[in-house]
Design a protein around this nucleic acid. Structure first.
Lengths: 348, 348
DNA sequence: CATACGTGAACAAACGTTTGTTCAATGTAT
DNA sequence: ATACATTGAACAAACGTTTGTTCACGTATG
């Protein structure tokens, strides 16, 4: 600790040591200290090492604010989202901030459903903090945030949200994931496979339905009835399954648009005395573990790899910020089938 | 837009106008411009207004980085958490950032369970960004983050996590909330009220149990058996309820330690042909809507008011930062009973 | 022996604000 | 008419870095 810092601290003010302190203690100029620590400039290895040692002794932390002022970068990103429960956002943010931390970049979070207007205020605060770029994330892949964003004048990457033309955006590859899920069921010998999913106006629902359809087609199977679009809720899965039971002609497998629906389906069958997975296999989508693990039996489902999605989006945004060429358009990132017991496969 | 900004932008670089631009256009010095915009200093109302108008014309945004450098404040907070799914963190963060946004303060998020070591890296990045303070949030009220935090040297407020002696911390008032829930059941005429909850080594579980016990005592009722401590899972609720059914002597109400357990209990009874709420009433804890709404019937439960918790914590931290006196210790914030149908009350 | 060159390091300006101090002009009291 | 307040605004330093440029000193080159 420097004398100055010590004095201030004893006065109740905590004060970090600055590069001047380091330079003074190492008997070099501030310039040299800066260059030594950043690995730039020319100097003897001995000098560089000495500066580094001193910096460590003083527990020196470069002041990112000062650096930002001269470099015109804040090493800071904003994450704007309207996801309420964090079902998507937190895993995304987790992957994002982990990837950014390596590079010294921090992430401002503005989560807004509770008070949409605070998104705007937060955005303004971020502008004033000169964030280097923005990640805009939503709750569905075909809608933007429900607020009017002012023109931003900074690089933006969209994740799990609709993006304007020419923007860079990342979404999970719903269609292929659905295909993989259905192929898995087919591989297990099921051939009457139904599909229950969310509202048709969700693009994710349409893509998953298309994946279901195409996997059946490539296996020469007919869909077991049309897909049932309605809501992303347990109640929907429950009621639809019950209606099928009542009507007779139950399929031997279900591919569901999300885990909640799958949960409802399983509950309905269990309640009706139909065995899962022996009589009917069920596969979900989302790998929301609180559901997927709690179903009886545990649910086979699709994991969208949200942390990876956050990470990819962050890296792309960094490239954009650095002026590297980034091809605009929608990138579909691969998902992963998580096999548990509800599909009837031996657990891996 | 200033000439300089226009020139730079046409070169592909987006550049905001600075206070110099504003000052020049308003024919005042930078000093005056600064004071006009901040509402400080002495000047004619006419001058102040002119500067403000010009600033608006240029869409001027003060550079928080420059301001931070001279004021030795970054108007920035860090939120450190290890919550995986964001069940707690996102509502908390939402309330926090909404309250901070008004004051021009932004919140860095570091969510870590996926990669704990990235919490450390993020923390380092935040130190370099000179965050004014830190909020440390966890998943349980009696444990800190599972990482070794270096000495921080900045104000810290703990939320939903264990805090060292002398620290400021906020937790929901579990005991009173539990009492309110049980009182509600008693008020509805139930008098054999059981309690199933999470592991006893969770302080939250012990507090909720104490609340249950004390509400019964004040009504002159005996607990229906000892509380069952085990796990915060649906499976636990399910199995415990089933065991009670098999053993006979079923209570007429359950107060459950969280919504997942309550869900398991309801499922077990429903499956056994026992009617909820007619034969047995159930109250949960958490108001995790994805469960509370999905149970059949919808679940009466306790809402911890997480956004409010985040807000309170943020305001306390701001006081701490401003050097205002803040009494250390644990603050218990009130929760709210959300009445739905599982308790047998007419829906309000 | 004079010149060129490479090396190691320092000088000084700049980034965009805030703020303590100074100063001129105007108004007011003596 | 003179001294003194008050008002309105500008000067200049400071915050902690980075970085283009300069400079002094040896050493190799012709």
């Amino acid at each position: 600790m420097t004398d100055r810092a010590a004095k201030l601290q004893s006065a109740g003010v905590y004060q970090r040591s600055t590069i001047r302190d380091v330079a003074a203690r190492a008997n070099v100029s501030v310039t040299t200290a800066s260059r030594a620590l950043n690995g730039t400039g020319r100097m003897s290895e001995e000098t560089r090492e000495r500066v580094r040692t001193v910096a460590a002794e003083l527990d020196y932390r470069p002041n990112s604010i000062a650096r930002g002022l001269v470099q015109q970068r804040s090493f800071t990103l904003g994450l704007l989202t309207n996801d309420t429960y964090g079902r998507f956002t937190l895993p995304l943010a987790s992957g994002l901030s982990a990837a950014m931390a390596d590079r010294g970049v921090s992430v401002f979070l503005s989560a807004g459903e509770y008070e949409p207007e605070s998104l705007i205020l937060n955005l303004r605060a971020m502008e004033e903090k000169r964030v280097d770029g923005l990640i805009i994330a939503g709750k569905r892949i075909d809608r933007g945030l429900p607020i009017d964003l002012p023109p931003l004048g900074m690089p933006v990457v969209y994740v799990y949200a609709a993006a304007p033309d020419g923007a860079v955006s990342f979404v999970p590859d719903d269609e292929n994931a659905a295909r993989a899920a259905v192929r898995h069921l087919i591989g297990l010998g099921r051939n009457r496979i139904a599909h229950i999913t969310g509202p048709e106006d969700f693009k994710a629902a349409r893509l998953r339905e298309a994946g279901w359809r195409s996997a059946l087609r490539e296996a020469g199977l007919a869909p077991h009835g049309p897909a049932v679009f309605s809501a992303w809720t347990e109640a929907h899965g429950f009621q639809t399954a019950r209606a099928m039971i009542d009507a007779g002609g139950v399929p031997d497998a279900f591919f569901c648009g999300n885990d909640q629906i799958a949960r409802g389906v399983i509950d309905a069958f269990t309640l009706a005395g139909v065995r899962v997975p022996q009589d009917v296999a069920v596969v979900g989508f989302d790998n929301w573990e609180v559901f997927a693990q709690a179903t009886r039996p545990p649910l086979t489902t699709i994991d969208m790899g949200l942390p990876g999605l956050g990470r990819s989006a962050g890296l792309a945004l960094l490239d954009l910020i650095d002026g590297k060429p980034v091809e605009p358009g929608v990138r579909e990132t691969p998902c992963k089938l998580v096999v548990r017991e509800s599909c009837g496969a031996t657990k891996v």
